[in-house]
Computed example of a mutant assay.
Amino acid sequence: MTAIVVDKLTKRFGDLTAVDCISFEIKEGEIFGLLGPNGAGKTTTISMLSTLLEPTSG
């Protein structure tokens, strides 16, 4: 059973695109992590999933 579906999630701050069209699916019971360098959009993605930030699209 699917717990979370993200489809073409994007967040822009003016001219800066922090998260650009990411998609993934997390199934119930899976362990999921976001890995990447500083500035890759990990915190922005989590903030959108937790409704602290409103996505630009997706």
Score class of each variant (00 low, 15 high):
27 K>T: 15
25 E>F: 07
19 V>H: 01
55 P>T: 01
37 P>V: 11
32 F>D: 09
37 P>I: 02
58 G>S: 06
2 T>F: 00
44 T>E: 08
8 K>G: 14
12 R>V: 02
49 L>C: 08
7 D>G: 01
22 I>M: 06
51 T>K: 09
6 V>F: 04
26 I>G: 01
41 G>Q: 00
56 T>I: 07
29 G>C: 14
10 T>H: 07
3 A>R: 00
11 K>W: 01
38 N>W: 11
37 P>K: 10
31 I>K: 14
19 V>S: 05
31 I>L: 15
57 S>M: 09
6 V>G: 01
38 N>P: 08
32 F>T: 02
50 S>A: 14
13 F>W: 12
48 M>L: 11
3 A>E: 00
46 I>A: 12
19 V>F: 04
43 T>N: 09
34 L>W: 02
33 G>L: 01
42 K>T: 07
12 R>F: 01
53 L>C: 08
27 K>L: 15
42 K>C: 08
27 K>Y: 15
44 T>D: 08
23 S>D: 12
11 K>V: 02
38 N>F: 11
11 K>P: 04
45 T>M: 05
44 T>F: 11
33 G>M: 04
6 V>M: 05
47 S>Q: 14
28 E>I: 08
39 G>N: 12
19 V>D: 03
46 I>S: 13
9 L>A: 07
2 T>W: 00
14 G>A: 05
53 L>Y: 07
1 M>P: 01
40 A>D: 05
33 G>N: 10
43 T>S: 13
25 E>T: 15
30 E>Y: 07
25 E>I: 13
16 L>S: 12
41 G>D: 05
43 T>G: 04
6 V>W: 03
54 E>C: 10
